[in-house]
Amino acid sequence: MSLKEEIKRQTSSGKVFMYENRLITKGGEVRWVWTSAELRRDARQRHTFTVFSMTLPPRKKTRRSWS
């Protein structure tokens, strides 16, 4: 499932979107990032997202390898 499809799926049933994703840096390093976003409407009724992202600790790699 693409990120766009996942956002659509989660926001269709509520206003909060949470996603965990693996990123590969230019140097080839793997990093895990967790993102939470809330869909809101501003005073003009336009949709906006308030977003919080956090890099997960390196032990995430170890936990994933056990799965």
Rank of each mutant, 00 (worst) to 15 (best):
R31M: 07
G27P: 09
M54I: 09
S53G: 11
S36K: 12
K15M: 06
T50F: 06
T25L: 12
T50C: 04
M18Y: 03
E6T: 01
S65N: 14
L3E: 15
R59I: 01
S65M: 11
G27Q: 08
R40P: 02
R9G: 07
E29A: 14
M54V: 09
E5I: 01
W32K: 04
K8Y: 01
E5D: 14
T48W: 07
F52I: 11
I7A: 07
T50D: 06
M18H: 07
P58K: 00
I7V: 08
S67C: 10
V33I: 12
K61R: 12
T55P: 11
R44N: 10
P57S: 14
G27W: 05
R9F: 13
R59A: 01
T35C: 08
S65F: 13
T55K: 11
K60S: 07
L39I: 09
F17A: 12
A43L: 05
R63A: 07
S12C: 04
Q10Y: 05
Y19R: 04
R41Q: 12
E29T: 08
W66T: 09
S67D: 04
R46T: 04
K60F: 02
E38A: 14
T48N: 05
M54H: 14
R40I: 06
Y19D: 13
E38M: 08
I7H: 02
A37S: 11
E20W: 00
M54N: 14
G14R: 00
R9C: 12
W32I: 00
Q10P: 13
K4D: 15
G28W: 00
S2G: 12
E5K: 03
D42S: 09
F49P: 02
R9H: 11
R46C: 03
N21K: 03
R31S: 07
E6N: 02
M54D: 13
T48P: 00
E20K: 02
T50Y: 06
I7P: 00
Q10N: 14
I7R: 04
K61T: 06
W34V: 12
G14W: 00
K8V: 04
S13N: 15
G27R: 10
T62A: 10
K4G: 15
S36R: 14
N21G: 11
K26F: 15
R46W: 03
